[in-house]
Amino acid sequence: MSTARVYRSADETKLVEGEFAFTGHDFQRIASLLYGEAGITLPEGKATLVYSRLAKRLRTLGLATFREYCDMVEAPDQLAERQAMMAALTTNVTRFFREPHHFDLLKSQVLQPLAPAVRAGRRLRLWSAACSSGQEPYSMALTLLETLPDAGRLDVRILATDIDPNMVAAARNATYSEDLIEAIPAAMRSRWLERDPEARHLWRLAQEVRDLVRVQPLNLIGDWPMKGRFDAIFCRNVVIYFDDATQERVWKRFAPILNPGARLYVGHSERVGYEGSPFISDGLTAWRVPGVLA
């Protein structure tokens, strides 16, 4: 866990006008808890956002002030509400084949070079480290099936993880509305998507696609139970919410679990740089560790 951060707004001044009393001290408690639980830095300028997103929780819980809410979420037995708080304060922006060049690079840099060895029995592991509602790992799976149509019979798996249990449930369900699947190429849609029999306006990834992806809850600053190494990790637009020290800690944990020559794909505003870093930039927000995938 990250060490709790002390914020300056620790007084009783009312920060936001609204139905619930929300002071600088309340903001400090929420910001420190979010940092300690998830490593996410909450700038003081986000007070209005914090109020608007958490006011719904206060109404649901029947609370009158943010002080009462802080007392609740800080209690050791309130894990579920802390998770609900983190879900409310984090942004889950995703879509199928978001930043499509990353999937082209995954295909050309990782999947095609490894395809002969994988067909011969080599293990292949990919990780979507902040999978949100699942569009990223399923885009990885569709890209994988383009290269290895028989992937389901090979030693191939994609790990998808997220801190938000609601997103984990959505990713496991793998069911999406018409507008969300528009970014999937038509040939892939016709082959790998099927209408939900109970809701004809929804589409579900075919069982063969879903079987490639294992979705699990995981906190990037918590324990990582994985034991094997990966050939590619997608961790995009996540560490921008972390401070420099937390970012470095995450990058350092990725390095030893990547195979030689493996790739790490990050967001456009993110850089994998720290003293002694083994990562080498491939450009276009792709980074690799030394060596050759084999």
Rank of each mutant, 00 (worst) to 15 (best):
M1A: 11
E12V: 05
T13W: 03
F22N: 09
F27N: 06
R29V: 05
L34T: 14
P43E: 13
T48N: 10
V50K: 05
Y51P: 04
S52H: 14
L54Q: 12
L54N: 12
L61V: 03
T65W: 06
F66V: 10
R67S: 13
D71E: 13
L79G: 04
A87P: 05
V93A: 12
T94I: 09
T94P: 06
R95G: 11
F97L: 08
R98A: 13
H101P: 04
K107A: 15
L111C: 05
L111R: 01
Q112T: 15
A115L: 09
R119T: 04
W127H: 07
A130F: 07
C131Y: 09
C131A: 10
E136Q: 03
E136S: 04
Y138W: 08
L142K: 01
T143C: 02
T147D: 04
A151V: 00
P165F: 04
V168N: 05
A171Q: 08
N173D: 12
N173L: 12
A174K: 11
T175S: 06
A187N: 07
R189N: 08
E194F: 09
D196V: 07
P197D: 11
P197W: 15
R200C: 02
L202Q: 14
W203G: 01
A206Q: 11
E208C: 11
L212R: 06
L212F: 12
L212I: 06
V215C: 12
Q216H: 07
L218E: 10
D223A: 14
W224F: 15
P225W: 14
G228R: 10
I233W: 10
V239N: 13
I240M: 08
Y241F: 15
A245G: 08
W251F: 15
G261L: 02
G261C: 04
R263E: 01
L264K: 06
V266T: 12
S269E: 11
S277A: 14
F279N: 12
I280E: 14
L284R: 14
L284Q: 15
T285I: 03
V289Y: 00
V289L: 03
V292S: 13
A294C: 02
